[in-house]
Amino acid sequence: MLRLLNFLYNYRAFLTFLFLEILCAWLWVGNSQYQNTRFFNSANRTVASIIRFSEGVREYVSLRDVNRELAEENAGLRTLVEQLTAQTDLLTTTPDTVLHFDYVSARVINNSVAQFKNHITINRGMDMGLAPGMAVISTSGAVGKVKSVSEHFAVVTSLLNTDEQVSSVLKRTGNFGTAQWDGTDPRMINLLYIPRHVQPQPGDTVVTSGYNAVFPEGILVGIVREVDLKKEAQFYDVRVELAQDFRRLAYVKVVKSYLKGELDSLERVTLGNQP
């Protein structure tokens, strides 16, 4: 017994080291998974307010860009309103459809593009009905998925995160693939699993497929820039330029899907215990 205690005492530094490293590794692995603890991330109120303070400076500097983008969006919306007003005059009956999606706009208070697993913090949280799993889009295109929420803030897994996969479709050919970032260039994303027999071309549009009911169908992901087919490879290497420039992200919209719960439970019932 004494020898055991002696042993433990002699190796106390190494044992503490092992314990701490295993603890950290466990936290890190848990963090990479989809939802995580609500407290220890940048959605925490104190953390978010510190971040917001330091972000204020950067925001002031980038006001000009943001202003221009908002003006462009404004113009786009105005034309849309005019078109719609013209249409509503023609419509006399209310269509029998269900409201699928609702949008909450939010301001980006923290954003990174240079890491391998980038996250975005936004200034809307549980109080606006946000929940983990909701899609986040901008006026230009898809942005990411809500990872965790606190009372007034939420952390979003950016598309620029090597863990994030978005079911997408090549608009021209109608083939499905998965958009995933490789961790290098913040302007480009890869479209995986486009089979050999398809002919993707530079200039093709890539949009979300709407297959998982997180993203609405047809949200722009990007434009195909490079297509490469290696000999003997099953799938194309497709490089897609992102529609949204993540380095200048200022305002986003969170998509509340009203039917996601219904779709999930229906699939669970139908598919049963299949993996």
Binding site: F17, L20, E21, L23, C24, A25, W26, L27, W28, V29, G30, N31, N36, T37, F40, N41, S42, N44, V47, I50, I51, S112, Q115, K117, H119, T121, V155
Partner: peptide
């Protein structure tokens, strides 16, 4: 310290692990 940094970087455990080493 690493844990504190991780909270801000949204990378729980990563900076802590490297710094403990």
């Amino acid at each position: 310290l690493g844990f504190g940094i991780d909270i801000f970087y949204d990378s729980l455990g990563l900076h802590a692990l490297s710094l403990v080493l």
